[in-house]
């Protein structure tokens, strides 16, 4: 009988200190997240130095809790997987150095995971991934369409040329004076209002799967300024709904077109913005119509967590990928295939 595989995952790339144990790459045994939202709220965004300071305060507590909930000892583990990049370098370094010290203390193999690979593999915790697979990654730092022909193989077919979708959400939320984090607020307001304003949609070249959100963001800012100058009322709900409709329209249309072109068997969405209700509904409806299975993880697995890092780490570990004690934080790390 094959022995079960247990991977400890550690994630500190932004403002969540997280640790998790995943069994056989598919089953969450424990999943602990210490969020800094309450502290970062004061600054209206994530301050890197504050994030790093909180990670040092939480890191061993969170790892201990993950092992405790899993009822496992360090020597029950097969490997330690940690987010190597991209992200805030000072924040990444806390998880990486804790992972290295832990791996060294117990002579465990170490695996450095790409944060986006983690977001994609969050889906493996919900259902088996089927290939070819198209992944839409939308978060505060990323807007990407990735084609996977098999496990551990990634082909970037489209990405944002300026702001990430989540970044546009945060900026528009700030323009509308909404509390941090702005994404869920816009989603909530939009659900109660109608999209009456015709904001632009950046389709770019006809054959491009790239995205651009800075024009949309500027359009929202201009709209607000114009109304203010004329002393006209600004309905934040209508602005939120119209902005969101533009974002969701572009994301859905491009994902749909790519899914058809590459004849994929499965479409998945991942990343913090994949927690957005309107986007989830729009993608679900669109792929129902095309009869292509579409999945998006529950919200707790869309936002940053360590279970997804352990899940991706599990696949990497199985393919023989190993990190070493000189691992560094890689803020601009590129997503590379690991199946070769």
């Amino acid at each position: 009988m094959k022995k079960d595989q247990y991977i400890l995952g550690i994630e500190t790339s932004c403002d969540e200190t997280a640790a998790s144990v995943v069994k056989n790459g598919t089953e969450i045994v424990s999943n602990v997240v210490a969020s800094q939202i309450e502290s970062q709220k004061r600054f209206g965004g994530v301050v890197p130095e504050i994030a790093s300071r909180h990670h040092v305060e939480q890191i061993t507590i969170v790892i201990e809790e993950a092992l405790k909930q899993a009822e496992l000892q360090p020597n029950d583990l097969d490997a330690v997987a940690v987010t190597e990049g991209p992200g805030l370098v000072g924040a990444l370094l806390i998880g990486i150095n804790a992972a290295k010290a832990f791996a060294f203390a117990h002579q465990l193999p170490l695996v450095g995971v790409h944060h986006i690979a983690g977001h994609i593999y969050a889906n493996q915790l919900m259902q088996q991934m089927e290939f070819p697979l198209l992944a839409l990654i939308v978060s505060g730092g990323h807007t990407e369409l990735v084609l996977m022909k098999e496990h551990g193989s990634f082909e970037l077919i489209g990405e944002t040329r300026d702001d990430a979708a989540g970044e546009a959400y945060d900026k528009v939320a700030r323009v509308l004076n909404l509390p941090y984090p702005g994404g869920p607020e816009i989603d909530r307001l939009a659900a109660e209002s109608e999209a009456t304003i015709d904001f632009p949609r950046a389709w770019l070249e006809a054959d491009s799967y790239d995205f651009s959100f800075s024009g949309l963001k500027s359009a929202v800012i201009n709209y607000k300024h114009n109304r203010e100058q004329k002393n006209e009322y600004i309905d934040a709900g209508e602005v939120a709904a119209s902005f969101q409709e533009s974002v969701v329209d572009v994301l859905t249309t491009k994902t749909r077109k790519a899914a058809k072109e590459f004849d994929v068997k499965q479409v998945i969405a991942a990343g913090g913005v994949a927690a957005n209700k309107q986007l989830r509904n729009s993608l679900t409806a669109s792929f129902n119509e095309l009869n292509i299975p579409f999945y998006v993880p529950p919200i707790a697995l869309c936002t940053d967590n360590a279970a997804m890092i352990a899940a991706a780490g599990s696949s990497m570990f199985t393919y023989g990928v190993r990190g070493s004690l000189d691992m560094n934080g890689r803020p601009g790390m590129e997503l590379k295939s690991w199946n070769k």
Partner: peptide, 19 residues
């Protein structure tokens, strides 16, 4: 250095805790 101090402290506290 903030980052420098944190690297040593993170390694030390992780080793101390887990060992």
């Amino acid at each position: 250095s903030y980052t420098g101090v944190r690297i040593g402290v993170t390694i030390a506290k992780t080793l101390a805790w887990t060992l």
